[in-house]
């Protein structure tokens, strides 16, 4: 079973191919160009290197959000397009969950944090049980204070991942040794994590038409929070 993963949720453009339970290849890099310019050539490039045809792919795994609106739409549209032409299934993965997947063997709670607005973050938390993630806090958009409250109310060791993990550690938890930041190679989005999660949840794959973005709209949330 071959799974192609695409992540365009942030500044990193990432594609990966998984065959069975092994990652055959992955290309990831931070780019200032728009994902619409590079993501499909990147997919083509990787498939060529692996000598795999697009027709051989059984599932497309993609980041469904939260993250950059334009980035997410580019990845999701590309996947929908590929699914429609090949009548193949796909799987949308929470960006926050895919970040946590990078460090799922951590002996504690993984806290995924991504920049949304000034002082506002996308936030999710997962307990690690034998290498599987169990949701502790459902994906949400919130002020930094809520992240602080969650962490300080917990006794567990905490690992922060995501594009603002260093900032959150520095601003909120410089006094707390039990709060760590993920290492450089694991703190940002990777398409291979999307592939792993699609592989694990292979009975939840959907059609291209069913795939949806989950933006966690900040503006709506701000209104609900009475900001």
């Amino acid at each position: 079973m071959k799974i192609l993963g695409i992540d365009t949720s942030g500044k990193t453009a990432s594609v990966a191919v998984m065959d069975g339970d092994r990652i055959l290849g992955e290309i990831s890099y931070v780019t200032r160009l728009t994902h619409s310019q590079i993501i499909l050539p990147l997919v083509k490039n990787l498939l060529e290197k692996l000598e795999i045809e697009l027709e051989d792919i059984d599932c497309f795994a993609v980041s469904e959000g939260p993250g950059s609106y334009t980035g997410l739409r580019i990845g999701i549209s590309a996947v929908k397009g590929m699914c429609f032409t090949k009548d193949v299934k796909c799987y949308g993965v929470s960006t926050l969950k895919s970040l946590a997947q990078n460090v799922r063997f951590f002996g504690g709670i993984v806290v995924s944090v991504m920049h949304a607005r000034l002082g506002i973050a996308y936030f999710g938390a997962y307990e690690c049980k034998g290498g599987k993630l169990v949701e502790a806090v459902a994906d949400k958009v919130c002020k930094y204070e809520e992240i602080e409250e969650f962490v300080r109310n917990s006794d567990e060791k905490i690992m922060l991942v995501g594009d603002i993990c260093e900032k959150i550690k520095g601003d909120l938890f410089s006094d707390l040794e039990r709060v760590e930041v993920a290492p450089a190679s694991l703190k940002m989005q990777r398409a291979s994590a999307l592939c792993e999660l699609a592989f694990e949840e292979n009975d939840s794959w959907v059609t291209g038409a069913e795939l949806e973005a989950r933006y966690l709209q900040v503006t709506k949330a701000e209104k609900d929070l009475g900001k």
Partner: peptide, 12 residues
Amino acid sequence: GSDDLETTGFYD
């Protein structure tokens, strides 16, 4: 309005 603005990707 701001909902409209958000979906343009302005904040990105």
